[in-house]
Every structure is written in structure tokens, then in C-alpha cells.
Design a protein around this nucleic acid. Sequence first.
DNA 1: CAACGGTGGATTGGATCCAATCTGTCGGAT
DNA 2: ATCCGACAGATTGGATCCAATCCACCGTTG
Lengths: 216, 216
Amino acid sequence: MTRATTQETVLVSLRSDILTGRLGPGDQVVQELLAERYGVSRVPIREALKTLESEGQVVYHPHRGYFVAELSVADLLEVYRLRSILEAEAIRQAVPILGDDAVDALAELLAEVQTAAGAVDVIAMTAANRRFHFAIFDAAGLPRLSRILRQLWEATDAYRALYFQGPENRDRVAREHTRMLSALRKRDAETLVRLHDEHREHSVGAVSAILAARDR
Amino acid sequence: MTRATTQETVLVSLRSDILTGRLGPGDQVVQELLAERYGVSRVPIREALKTLESEGQVVYHPHRGYFVAELSVADLLEVYRLRSILEAEAIRQAVPILGDDAVDALAELLAEVQTAAGAVDVIAMTAANRRFHFAIFDAAGLPRLSRILRQLWEATDAYRALYFQGPENRDRVAREHTRMLSALRKRDAETLVRLHDEHREHSVGAVSAILAARDR
DNA sequence: CAACGGTGGATTGGATCCAATCTGTCGGAT
DNA sequence: ATCCGACAGATTGGATCCAATCCACCGTTG
């Protein structure tokens, strides 16, 4: 059994801090503070922050430190535009080579999302939601594409949690996922692409509204 | 004047080491060795390596260290496939909003590539070539897209230098760039996209041949 | 009163030291 | 002869310490 290194555990903690809003957009990330919070030295914190920086989750100013990235509306639109292009590519590649067992696994993941939604556990729902979508994307067998998509998803993590706050959004996501699964069962890539586009379309609208409200 | 931090200087040194083949694909990157070579401690090395890791230039195995990434043929094909999609997007966005002054600047960059090609300075040519292409991509005003494209380009840096070794490849690139510039002057995005596709098509063939030769 | 320069506290950047882990090798047991 | 475990060297991971930088505050000066 290979134990996780400290920087790895710190990394997941930091991600969750950002996801839950404990570290909000624009906040300075003081290394000493985190070191104390997690009971480690500053070294693994720094390495974890470097990773987050390259993912665009935090920005780095030399000699000033790391700050949780803030998304402008333009950023948000760009992220969704890129996702639209790349997810379509992933889906078209994945659907024809998806085995029945993989589809069954997806049904399983769908159930997890529903469960978390029912329990109003926003964190669990965000995680399950991601697993559902990436089970499809990863099936394309294009690791770099998966990696880029992960970065794009993570870039909006700080805001996605807000989206799932609304019960109507949770219900909507549940319905859409069900339709995605049925398109998958028919191996209907084009419908799946269209459903994803609608899915994103709605959430980009909702999140921009949140952003606009914040900036006021 | 704000001085560069050590990790930044180390980062550019490392990039150049990889580009020139001083660090070849598959090599282990021993931190102590680099620390001595650059006359610094291991800390900035580690941070620079973290950055390279997230770009996919090196891979990281906990407790074992960093290794210069090796590209399989499948990796290479994926990189070029993604570039094809994303560069087309960048070009279509950029061309209509490109000012005359920007086109003039590109002509300038083209000249630099030619000069370096004439001088058989592979390093300078690689750098100038990149500046030429990214002047176009960056003009799209989509920073995340630019960033992703940079990562994709860097992933094949270790192999690109080999491509420019061949004089016929250098000549070909020079000709193609000239045609790109003239398409740009006419604001003909579709021709420019097509030229880029041909450009890539040829180099992916050449680099796969190099890869195949290595693996034998 | 605005602009400038100095000063002190806070924070990050880098160096050095020690601990943890991995890997290859050498004996010994089966 | 082969497999297994202990040991040693090498390398990385993390902690601690000191130096460099930044930034806000304040007093001075024009």
C-alpha cells in the first residue's frame, strides 16, 4: 500500500476549500495559515498551490502570493465555449466504442447523483455529477482531452456549487441526465451532444446571473 | 525593475534543456544534479518541475521523481487532433478582428523565422516559429484557448527540434508561412485554416517517422 | 494638501537539514 | 536454481530557518 504524499492530501483539501467557498474568489491564500490549518509545513502547500496555479484555479504574483482566481463573465463564456467544442469531440469519439457494461456503470453513477440530490448534499452531488460526465468523456480514450476538460471544469468549481444551491437546478440536472442515459443506450451521439449543449447553455446563463449579482 | 525569481529562471532553463535534447525523453530528472548545474538549491527546481508536470512535459512518480515525458504515437496523434480543432477555432475568431498593424507585425515575425532558418539556428527558428503562430492565436482574445494551445505545443517540444533538423522541412515551413501571411492579408480565414491543417499534417507524418525510428 | 521617501511588519522565496521511501544487491532458505 | 527478505545507497519529501520583497503607514516637504 503506497501512502499518499502530504502535498497530495493538501491538494484535495485545497480543492474542497475552493469548492465549498471556504476560500472564496479573490481571497489571498496565505501559506502560513493553511500550513497551520492542515498541521503541515509550508513546503507541501507551495507545491499544491503550484499545481492549482497551472490549472488556473489560483493566480500567482511573485513575492505577493497566490489568490483564488476570479472569473469574469468573459472568462466564463470562454470556458463554456471551449467545453462545447471539446466535449462534442469526446462524445462523438466515445459513444460508438462504449460497451454495454460501461453504460450500466453510467446508470449506476446516475443513481448516485440522484441520491445526493435527494439528500441535498451539494458537495456529493457535484462530485457524482462530475464522475457521471467524465465517465463518458474518459471513454473516448483521449487522455489529454480528458485532462483539458478537467481543467476547464475545475476553473468554474468555485461557482458551480452555487448553481446546485437552487432546488430547481438540481431537478433539472436530474432530468437531463436521465435523457442523456437513454440517448446513450441508443448509441445516439448527436442527441447526446445536443443535450450537453442545452445543459451547458442553461448553466452558463444561471452562473452569469450569479456573477453579475456579485459584481454589483 | 522587478527581478525574476529563481524558479522562473530555472523554468526557462529546463524548457531549453528539454527543447535542445540535453534532457531527452524518458530521462530521469535528478533534482540534486540540476541544483548543482544551476547553482541553486533544490526548492526552486521542485517548483519549476511542478509547473512542467502540469504542462505534461515531465511526469511525476511520488518518491521516485520526475521523468521527461515520452510521447507515444497515440499521444502525438491526439495532440495534433486537438490542435487541429482548437487552432481552427482561434483562427476563425482572430482573422476578422485582426488590424493592419497586427498583420504588419506578423510580417516582421515571418522575417525572423526566415533569418533563423537561413542561419540554420534551430533553436531560434523554433522560437520564432512559435511567436509567429501564437501572434495569430493570441489575437483571438481567448486567453484560455491560447494557454491550452501553448501546452499542446510544448508537449511536442522535445520532438519538434528534430523536425527542424531537416533542411527540406525548414524550407517547407518557410514557404507555408509566406502563404499564410498572404491569406491573412486577404482576411481569408478558411484558407488559413486549411494551410494550418496541411502544415500539421506534414509535420505529424515526419515526427511519427522519427518516433517509429527511435522505438526500433 | 498632495506627493514623496523612509520604516516596520507581514509574507513569500530560497537554503539547509533530517526523515521517509524506493531500488538494487547480496545472502540464505527452500 | 529460484525466490524471499534484509540491508545500503541514492533520491525524494517535508520541516525549519534566514533572506528578499512587498505594502501599508506615517512623517516630511514642496
